[in-house]
């Protein structure tokens, strides 16, 4: 028996070097263009809200881990990501105390009570955003104009999303005349509107306004292989398809679907919230179903419900369905012949 003891363990004896920190860091990097755009357009409002949500999210993460007597998980950066995404879904004029409450709900209730990163059933940022929207509907639907920081007046100007919403509400109530009038506002300047929606110089939540910034982030994430592209494509694709059908049925012109995809937080939600690893299905088939469900629900809620936006609700609903999707879309195991599920029922 020699003195030196060899190390014995089990294969494999190599690791790809991939880690959760790096993944989270990539998400943060991909958020930078969006953050820059929001600071450009909303100035101090943006900076304050983002700083508040991020700092409070990290603080709550630290405190709750301390109280639960678990290892400190702040260094995995997931709290930063949650804080940033939550902040980017809020309007620039959000009272800071509400932003802090949002972080509390997101980190403590939705994430840590379920056991921390990897365990949450609902997307923390989406759940917190929906919670705040129901709890404080007035401050969370007060929009400010970009650059000027003045409040949007509901009668004269409006967010692109509210223009779309007006059209849809009128269709729902059957008042086609009013719908057409409302639509003419969009139609008169549709290319201009699309341009604004791409650059982001419109009223809205901090992160959702600039499509270009979001797409840059998306490309970064795709290059780094940090997101499942099938969710983004099936989400945006199915939402687009539904609006195309709507605009064909109600004769709303060719640009309407494009505008309603770009308006609101659909793109932001599709890229940064729906693709959250933890709360989306684990197989490709499941993710496509997930995305289609999101797209249809978003447009349905956005069009027909009391709420101006359907993204967070549809994300919450599909999060809820995820365990069921996961169970029924398991991969066919190598060499196993598929059991016909019809025969059982």
């Amino acid at each position: 028996m020699e003195n030196k003891m060899r190390k014995v363990t089990w294969s494999p004896f190599a690791h790809s070097g991939n880690s959760v920190n790096m993944a989270m860091l990539d998400v943060i990097i991909s958020l930078i263009p969006v953050i820059i755009a929001s600071v450009l357009f909303f100035r101090m409002g943006s900076v304050l809200v983002l700083l508040t949500t991020t700092a409070s999210a990290v603080a709550f993460e630290y405190i709750s881990r301390l109280v639960l007597k678990r290892y400190n998980s702040c260094q995995d950066l997931s709290a930063v990501v949650t804080g940033l995404i939550l902040g980017l879904t809020l309007p620039p004029s959000t009272p800071l105390i509400i932003a802090v409450l949002g972080s509390l709900i997101a980190i403590v209730v939705v994430k840590q009570l379920f056991g921390g990163i990897g365990n949450n059933v609902f997307n923390p940022a989406a759940a917190a955003r929906a919670f705040l929207l129901i709890a404080f509907s007035v401050p969370l639907t007060n929009w400010v104009n970009p650059m000027t920081s003045t409040y949007v007046d509901a009668t004269t100007s409006a967010t692109p999303l509210s223009l779309v919403k007006t059209v849809m509400m009128n269709i729902k109530t059957g008042d086609m005349e009013a719908a057409r009038t409302a639509y003419s506002v969009i139609e008169s300047n549709s290319w201009g509107l699309i341009k604004l929606l791409f650059t982001g110089e419109v009223a809205g939540s901090l992160g959702e306004t600039s499509a270009i910034a979001i797409i840059i982030g998306l490309i970064y994430l795709i290059v780094k292989k940090r997101i499942h592209t099938e969710i983004v494509t099936s989400y945006v694709g199915s939402a687009f398809l539904v609006t195309v059908i709507l605009s064909l049925v109600y004769d709303l012109g060719p640009l309407f679907p494009l505008i309603s995809i770009l308006a609101g937080s659909l793109l932001f939600g599709a890229v940064f919230m729906a693709t959250d690893w933890v709360t989306s299905p684990m197989t490709k088939k499941g993710r496509i179903i997930f995305g289609i469900g999101l797209g249809v629900l978003t447009i349905v809620i956005r069009t027909f419900s009391n709420f101006p936006e359907g993204v967070v609700f549809s994300i919450l609903i599909m999060n809820m369905v995820t365990p069921l999707i996961d169970r029924h879309t398991g991969n066919r195991i190598f060499g196993k012949v598929k059991v016909k599920s019809n025969e059982k029922k």
Partner: peptide, 23 residues
Amino acid sequence: ASTNMLIMILPPGAFLTLGIILG
């Protein structure tokens, strides 16, 4: 009035309150 959280008197508030109290 500015601190009133409408959600607490809606169904989610009921589930949440009871859940947290039990916890």
